[in-house]
């Protein structure tokens, strides 16, 4: 599998994502600059990493969603290329219209970094197929704006179509219906606030994130 990690100005989990992918795929991930016009043709997975793209100015993810590279990311996503957005990447996916809803300031207005228990809600996707339905895993969050919001109709639709991939056990940010991660309609785009790339090594907090990347092989 050939993966690409998009580097926006002030992305800061780009290296972590590339390392996790390299560990699992055995191949280095391609770092693609936000100013480039296109993602290389041979890429099978596009990752939008965590960070503070454009300093979170205007709205988180809003400016990155208009980066030159995003035109091609949207085109590729619509053509079926899998896209994984982690943390800031999830925010960018929402701003780019590839996923529904928005991520607002955390309900208590504070940044939060802690390992959080998640329930795997949906295993029918290329990202979650290696987990068991209802399995509890622990993955860290680190964000100030991870409070997922969408209107009731959209939330009902996400639930009805089995597109809520992960749910918080103990909601750290006020997200609607404890949603931590969602899938696109074609189930090939995943956006989530927790950082699976940080838990791929028993020495640094566990390995619960590794199976997400392994499932992509």
């Amino acid at each position: 599998m050939n993966s690409a990690v998009i580097v926006f100005p002030a992305s800061n989990c780009d290296r972590d994502a590339a390392d996790a992918l390299a560990k699992v795929t055995g191949k280095p991930s391609r770092m693609v600059w936000h100013g480039d016009a296109s993602v290389p043709d041979d890429i099978d997975l596009i990752v939008l990493p965590g960070g503070f793209s454009y300093g979170d100015y205007l709205r988180t993810g809003a400016m990155a969603a208009h980066s030159p590279i995003m035109k091609d990311v949207v085109r590729r996503a619509k053509a079926g290329t899998p896209v994984l957005g982690i943390c800031n990447g999830f925010q960018i996916l929402c701003e780019a219209g590839l996923l529904p809803g928005v991520l607002m300031r955390n309900a208590n207005l504070k940044f939060v970094c802690r390992p959080v228990p998640l329930v795997v809600e949906e295993t029918q996707s290329m990202y979650t197929r290696n987990y068991a339905k209802g399995e509890a895993i622990t993955v860290p969050v680190a964000h100030g704006e991870g409070n997922y919001f969408a209107d009731e109709e959209t939330l009902d639709q996400l639930e009805g179509e089995g597109r809520v991939a992960f749910r918080y056990v103990d909601n750290p940010n006020g997200s609607a219906r404890n949603i931590a991660g969602i899938l696109s309609e074609n189930r090939r785009i995943l956006g989530l606030m927790p950082h699976p790339e940080r838990v791929c090594d028993p020495l640094t907090g566990g390995t619960d994130g590794k199976r997400l990347f392994e499932a992509l092989l």
């Binding site: 972590d16 940044f111 970094c113």
Partner: peptide
Amino acid sequence: VWEQYDHSVMADTVQPPGGDAAIVR
């Protein structure tokens, strides 16, 4: 205090805040 600081980014934090000393790989 320390939950408001990202202490796991870079994925090398072996001992997070709360111990005698932190360890970063």
